[in-house]
């Protein structure tokens, strides 16, 4: 018998694919209402022009963009899923993986890199037991890299949501994580 702790214990047919669109009808209709305000027609070229802003809104609503959300957007705009995915994977702003409540981002710009951002990132990975681009199992923290944030005098810089930590050393990592619980 498996050691799963979920209510379906034993009756599980494998990990089900997450379907946010079905799971959260009110969020889906919020997105749909937004899309309705745009001038979506059968003109694919024109719809394409709306793609980024729709994805932006979708990520705002669902916090990330798994495949079912991508497909929903694709269908609404009469685009192919592949095209939507292409855009999401190109812009680092978009993510198709769930993100934690606290988004910890280490600046990987030149100045931070030179001043040891790599070591900070390694320490964060070790401390949280996740890789870059992943989220902890409790959904609390996600870890990522960031292009230069323009705070080079404070290098190396770590951002947690909107909060900036400057002159970060590896010793500061536990404190940064601790701050998040407050």
């Amino acid at each position: 018998m498996s050691s799963c702790t979920c209510s379906k214990d034993g009756g599980c047919s494998g990990i089900e694919e997450i379907n946010l669109i079905k799971l959260f009808p009110e969020k889906t209709s919020e997105l749909d209402r937004y899309i309705e305000t745009l001038n979506i027609t059968s003109d694919i070229e024109q719809n394409r022009g709306y793609l980024i802003q729709v994805l932006h809104r979708a990520q705002g609503i669902f916090s990330y963009l798994p495949e079912d959300v991508q497909l929903h957007v694709a269908n609404k705009l009469s685009l192919h899923l592949s095209e939507v995915y292409g855009v999401i994977s190109f812009y680092s702003y978009f993510t198709d993986k769930p993100v934690g409540k606290y988004k910890i981002n280490v600046c990987t710009g030149t100045a931070c890199f030179v001043k040891g951002a790599g070591r900070i990132l390694d320490e964060l990975k070790r401390y949280l037991s996740i890789e870059e681009g992943e989220t902890t199992a409790d959904g609390k923290f996600s870890l990522g890299g960031l292009r230069c944030v323009g705070a080079c005098s404070l290098a190396p810089v770590v951002m947690v949501n909107d909060k900036v930590y400057g002159n970060v050393t590896t010793d500061m990592v536990p404190q940064i994580i601790n701050d998040c619980s407050e």
Binding site: E67, S82, E83
Partner: peptide, 19 residues
Amino acid sequence: VGILTGANRGFEAVVSPAS
């Protein structure tokens, strides 16, 4: 048919189906 797309960027850039 719409299967293939350029995905990712920089050195990781690749042409592939979604995800």
